[in-house]
Design a protein around this nucleic acid. Structure first.
Length: 976
RNA sequence: GCGGGGGUCGCCAAGCAUGGUCAAAGGCGCGAGGCUCAGAACCUCGUCCCUCAGGGGUUCGUGGGUUCGAAUCCCACCCCCCGCACCA
């Protein structure tokens, strides 16, 4: 066989056209057939898809193709998710000439510059990548019903989303409230990760403000640890910073200038009164609102005016920064003098211990400072020290007796209580701040926190709704099922989710038109829309015909078709047909997606279905897969190792690419793509094609040719392959399925080809080989068809088969073709060969002649008897002997019997029950003739003459007295 | 911290639910041979250590335990990855 190079792209284009023209992937209602409705998360068209996306889609397609071959009426549709903000943001950046992004577009995505120029219109971006992705999907051979395609900004789709939201609203699942977001004050927009320099996600944290009093003003110290207020010894201000006095919600506050600017965005009424330098306040005394204790205000350079209020309370016992700053200050006499602070006062300030923490002294802050060898307040290690103390105290600390009513509480609880109580009594407040400050917007402005008022939320925290979601999940299959607990956890933990924003593409909230429904919320029940989109397109149904009555009727079966016709002007008959189609395909049989969508989309999908649809229409299954790595590394723009799907198809071919993303890892694991792997898979497919062509060219044998052991063995093995491959693919363990269909089967084939060499075969042998190879090929093509559809169609056609392999019957396991005896015989020969080679290797003998001796008949009897005995339980060796001796024939064997039993005892005892039963069924195999038949083969393999005797043969040649070592299934060997 | 996944013979990766056929599949890499003028591709064999008769020894993150027997079950510990939201 020589490696002819296959023209993959020719084959691809050919079959793609055939599939399209034959409409085999278009599914309509067919009441005679079981349906199977599969969907994959539709793509967001802001970039071409890469092989990572390809994995999820390919998996779904394999599933669809497999189900189709099993006789199901399979619907696999596809849509495009235009909704959201990233496309908008991209468009803006491109318009501004963002070099980095333009590079990505030209170098990685290979978009022509002329096209990029049009991308200042965001829709152009979406349309462009929409087509790009769709083309890739077609090239990959996905068996999609394209008639149902839509985008999420189609006005008809918007009607559908409006309906969804009204339903949620009616049920009380939509609530309004306020909520903090990262914000760019210059752009006047919320900022997400993709809006910031370096793609940093702004982390919003909640500080607690504690209102200290000073000369009729409030000094709002901001802290993440309100419970430590009982350990305050002083207040820190930065003497070099501009502070301001201002009226904040009717109170007089002193805060940093920067704080005043930010605090407006937190929806407070602010009026500036006058500026005041930090230095002016140093040395004054402030009163703690909870304890009434007066503490001095001291200078500290580490106080950052940009962080929260610019005022810090000092808790040296439990905050390493504070401890160190105090220590430093004591050494700076001239600075103290400058602010007229009595050094004795400083000496009198002692850290207060308020938290008990096992493994630490009264002052954990001090412990950690000493442990880390920190010497000054500018030491970077202070960050780490703070984190340690915070974390340890939060999780394992207890409030001490000097903490008023919080005594004995764990710190984590006390923290919440103190905060609540402070706010309740107006002695405190909250203040949102960006924790990973500074986060810079792409426009160059530092981001801040803004509180969005009247934000709309979907209330996934609603307990009764959670109950429904849990019920839905319980009746669902999660594949792989390890992930069930992750879903459960997510359902339990979901709270309110902001569901609308002020910018982006999408549908407006029907009752509050300034809000646009956010993209994770408009993509949770759209699978239902596929069942109607076909009609909307074919019958030109306009958006205003799609009233709530329409959806109520089609999706919920509410109302009467005649009434709905009057309202919508859609024919009653058509309405009924649409309803019928929905009811036919729903519920969804399987939803495919990457595992990153579990904590959001997939769980929302469950929630929303549970909220809107009746129980019998709830989805039945979710399949989750891992991602694709590129030579062990994560694919990312910055590594420059993203392979666009279409490029992979061009270089490696569609079938190969499909295999590459599916065959290297089991479902949940990350798959690893590499060019070497793709090359090797490609070679595998080419050899398969070669093999197929050779088999096709063989003349068929007559139908009743007799099969010898090798053929019966191969057919038997084939059955087993069908069985395990089918089970694997049934459970979506595609890697395993591919392994069997592609590799295991090939190994069997190799063995068979070796065993029945084509040199000078008899007519019967030739015909038998031809027939068995044709059976193998026909099966293998079908086993591989879901995975590598193009090459399989090509071979199927060349085989002269009717119809397309895409809709051929999946091979079925035929138990009648299992031939256990043939299996055991072949295995005996394999073992014999292997053992012989092993001996040759170890002894380094160059063999002239090899002698085999098969077991005496009495050994078989003993062997089978032993198997029988162990069928019912275990026995020690003595017990076994006793049982055997019950047979008078055995007694005569004497010592030889005992030695033989000794040798087989362990083997028989440890033998897996399957094998034991199998051998009991087979009883005795004729090793002598099996080996004699295989003599030619064995001689060729070992390059030596082979002679086979029975142990009982009196004329045997046995100079080393080996024959007595023979055992059933294990012949004795002598090599000379 | 919470939740999830994972640590297997150079690398990737099966196996672990149902303990014994597990020195442990497969792929890649590597080595030898074949084919070639040569190379690539391809095919065959080998690839933990020892071994002149099919054998033995030590392995599956670490340490214990259960068992006649553990990669597989139990306990403790160490390490790595992912998610924790308004973003698709």
């Amino acid at each position: 066989m020589k490696g002819l190079v296959i023209d993959w792209s020719r084959i691809r284009e050919k079959w793609r056209r055939v599939w399209e023209e034959s409409h085999i992937f278009e599914a309509d209602v067919d009441l005679k057939k079981d349906k199977c409705f599969l969907t994959v998360a539709y793509p967001y068209p802001n970039s071409p898809q890469h092989i990572g996306h390809g994995r999820t889609y390919t998996l779904a397609d394999v599933h669809a193709r497999y189900m189709r071959m099993c006789g199901k009426n399979v619907l696999l549709p596809m849509g495009f998710h235009y909704t959201g903000t990233p496309i908008l943001a991209m468009s803006k950046r491109l318009a501004e000439g963002d070099k980095e992004l333009i590079d990505t577009f030209t170098k990685i995505y290979k978009v022509p510059m002329d096209t990029i120029k049009q991308f200042k219109d965001p829709l152009r971006i979406a349309r462009y990548f929409h087509e790009e992705i769709k083309e890739g999907m077609k090239e990959m051979g996905y068996s999609i019903d394209w008639r149902r395609e839509f985008t999420t900004i189609d006005p008809q789709y918007s009607r559908f989303i409006e309906w969804q939201f009204k339903k949620l609203y009616e049920k009380g699942y939509i609530v309004q409230g306020s909520h903090p977001v990262g914000w760019c004050p210059k752009d006047g927009n919320p900022v997400g990760q993709h809006d910031t320099v370096g793609d940093v996600e702004p982390e919003i944290g909640e500080f607690v403000i504690i209102k200290f009093f000073i000369d009729g003003y409030i000094l709002p110290a901001a802290t993440l640890r309100p419970e430590t207020v009982f350990g305050v010894t002083n207040i820190w201000l930065n003497p070099d910073v501009e502070y301001v006095k201002a009226r904040v919600d009717g109170e007089d506050w002193i805060v940093s200038k920067e704080c005043l600017r930010k605090i407006r965005y937190l929806n407070r009424k602010v009026e500036e009164i006058e500026g005041v330098r930090g230095a002016e306040l140093i040395g004054k005394w402030a009163e703690s609102p909870l304890t009434g204790l007066k503490v001095p205000i001291l200078p500290a350079s580490f106080v950052d005016p940009k962080n929260a209020t610019g005022i810090v309370m000092s808790v040296p016992g439990h905050a390493p920064y504070d401890y160190q700053a105090l220590k430093d200050l004591k050494k700076r006499g001239e600075e103290l003098a400058l602010y007229k602070i009595d050094p004795e006062l400083l000496d009198s300030i002692a850290p207060i211990s308020i938290i008990e923490l096992e493994g630490y002294s009264d002052l954990p802050a001090l412990d950690v400072i000493e442990k880390m060898g920190i010497e000054s307040q500018d030491d970077q290690k202070l960050e780490e020290a703070t984190a340690e103390v915070y974390s340890r105290e939060f999780h394992s600390g207890w409030m001490k007796s000097n903490t008023m009513e919080y005594v004995g509480l764990p710190v984590s609880i006390a923290k919440e209580r103190v905060k609540e109580d402070l706010i309740q009594s107006h002695k405190g407040d909250t203040f949102y701040e960006i924790l990973n400050r500074p986060v810079i917007c792409r426009c160059g402005t530092e981001c801040i926190v803004k509180i969005f008022e009247n934000q709309w939320f979907i209330n996934y925290g609603d307990e009764s709704w959670k109950g429904l979601a849990e019920e839905c999940l319980e009746n669902m299959k999660i594949v792989p099922d390890d992930l069930l607990s992750e879903f459960k956890y997510t359902i339990g933990w979901l709270r309110q989710k902001a569901c609308a924003r002020k910018s982006g593409l999408g549908t407006r909230l029907p009752w509050d038109k300034e809000w646009i429904i956010e993209s994770l919320s408009d993509s949770v029940i759209y699978m239902a829309y596929y069942t109607i989109s076909k009609y909307i397109k074919f019958h030109d149904i306009s958006p205003d015909q799609l009233t709530d009555d329409f959806f109520d009727y089609v999706f919920l079966g509410n109302g009467d078709s005649r009434e709905v016709e009057k309202i919508t002007k859609i024919d009653e008959e058509l309405l009924e047909k649409i309803r019928e189609e929905f009811i036919y395909f729903y519920p969804l049989d399987s939803r495919h997606s990457g595992r990153d969508l579990i904590p959001n989309h997939l769980t929302f999908f469950i929630f929303n279905h549970a909220a809107i649809f009746p129980k019998d229409l709830w989805p039945k299954q979710i399949v989750v897969n891992g991602s694709v790595l590129m030579e062990g590394k994560k694919m990312s723009k910055s590594f420059g190792n993203i392979i666009p799907l279409r490029e992979a198809i061009r270089i490696y071919g569609a079938d190969t690419s499909r295999l590459a993303v599916l065959s290297t890892a089991e479902l949940l694991q990350d798959a690893d793509f590499s060019p070497t792997l793709a090359k090797s898979l490609n070679g595998r497919l080419e050899r398969f094609y070669d093999f197929a062509m050779n088999v096709i060219n063989l003349e068929s044998g007559s139908e009743n040719v007799e099969f010898s052991t090798e053929e019966r063995w191969l057919i038997s093995r084939l059955q087993r392959t069908i069985k395990v491959a089918t089970k694997a693919i049934d459970e979506l363990r595609v890697r395993e399925a591919i392994n069997y269909a592609l590799y295991e089967l090939d190994r069997d084939l190799q063995w068979y080809l070796k065993r029945s060499p084509m040199e000078n075969p008899s007519e019967n042998e030739k015909e038998a080989a031809s027939n068995v190879l044709k059976i193998l090929l026909e099966t293998k093509v079908r086993l591989l068809a879901p995975f590598t559809p193009y090459i399989c169609e090509e071979i199927w056609e060349k085989m002269g088969k009717e119809g397309l392999v895409s809709v051929a019957d999946w091979p079925t396991y035929d138990e009648k073709k299992i031939d256990e005896e043939a299996e055991e015989m072949e295995e005996m020969i394999m073992r014999t060969l292997e053992d012989t080679l092993n001996i040759i290797k170890v002894t380094k003998i160059e063999p002239n002649r090899i002698y085999y001796y098969t077991s005496a008949e009495w050994k078989w009897e003993v062997y089978l008897k032993a198997l029988e005995v162990f069928e019912t339980g275990t026995l020690d060796i003595g017990g076994l002997m006793k049982r055997l001796m019950e047979d008078s024939k055995m007694k005569k064997m004497g010592k030889g019997l005992y030695r033989f039993v000794q040798r087989i005892y362990d083997e028989v005892r440890k033998m897996p029950p399957d094998l034991r039963e199998k051998r009991l069924r087979i009883r005795i195999i004729d090793e002598l003739s099996a080996l004699r038949d295989a003599t030619d083969f064995l001689e060729k393999e070992m390059g030596a003459k082979v002679e086979v005797y029975s142990e009982e043969d009196s004329k045997k040649f046995d100079p080393k007295d080996r024959a007595k070592l023979a055992q059933p299934y294990r012949v004795a060997i002598y090599i000379s």
